[in-house]
Amino acid sequence: MKFLNKIATAAAVGSLALGATIAQADSKEPIVIPTHNWTSQITMAYVIGGIFESIGNNVSYVPADSQAVYESIRNGDVTISHEVWQSTFSKSFNNALDAGGIIDVGTHASVTQEEWWYPAYVGELCPGLPSWEALNDCADIFATAGSGGKGRYLDGPMDWHGQETLDRIEALDMDFTAKFAGSSGALWAELESAAKDNRAVVVFNWSPNFTDAGDGGSFVEFPEYTDGCKKADGGDGKCGSPPAGWLKKAAHYQMPKKWPEAYKIFNNVSFTKGDIGNMAALVDIDGMSHEAAAAKWLEDNEATWKAWL
């Protein structure tokens, strides 16, 4: 079955080349776009949906769990995924690729960074930041009730990158413990609460994200990432995350055949860090609804997306 799926995938990719010459019309069946639970992703869903609609396609949106969505793409219940983050979703995405039925549609222009992060005011509480050694020196101000006197680093959910954080703390012999939050909501709640009385926190964060706007904050600087430096890859583990992770797009393997036009556009779609930040800001800062924000972005950036058609 797996084998068959791979053949089918290959055939689909092959027919893409043909599709360009035959110029077959898109199916009128709706292209199903998933919405997860963070702003930029939802707004971008409506932006991409709007682009598809502008060429006469039908679109429908479906709320989906961000990990389970790849399984649904394989089954054809969802057509695309437009924000596949390297560190958080690569496991689910790769599992789905192995199982077949899903295709990799390239990357966005925006690179991603995922690393330990602190809000701007923490810089004053712990001079010497963003260096990791400085962070380690003032570990005590990051201590919490459960951290047993050490500094507490609030990581994302365990399934995002699992053992890696623990490996790094051990390899660098840091005076920190890692606590895994259960959801991104938990991360933001902790950040918000800490900001209210200028408490020192260091949490997992990524960019582009809504935290890029406003007062912002900075990523902690760890020893530079080199290929194979991570423990899981056989290295000593004394390094940070890759400074430029990928942000991919994925689609159901039949998309090139069923919606050749839309697929061509989706292939071209490539948002920059600025685009993503703007989309998020329209909702998070200006208080617009996701649909309205998407409409505004499409209106303001016509030149950008018209070029992809």
Partner: peptide
């Protein structure tokens, strides 16, 4: 459901299984 806050019990693993093969 508390796994959404962050726990290290069975619930965390159940959440994690969403991304397992």
């Amino acid at each position: 459901i508390g796994a959404f806050i962050g726990t290290d019990d069975l619930g965390q693993l159940i959440m994690q299984s969403l991304s397992e093969a």
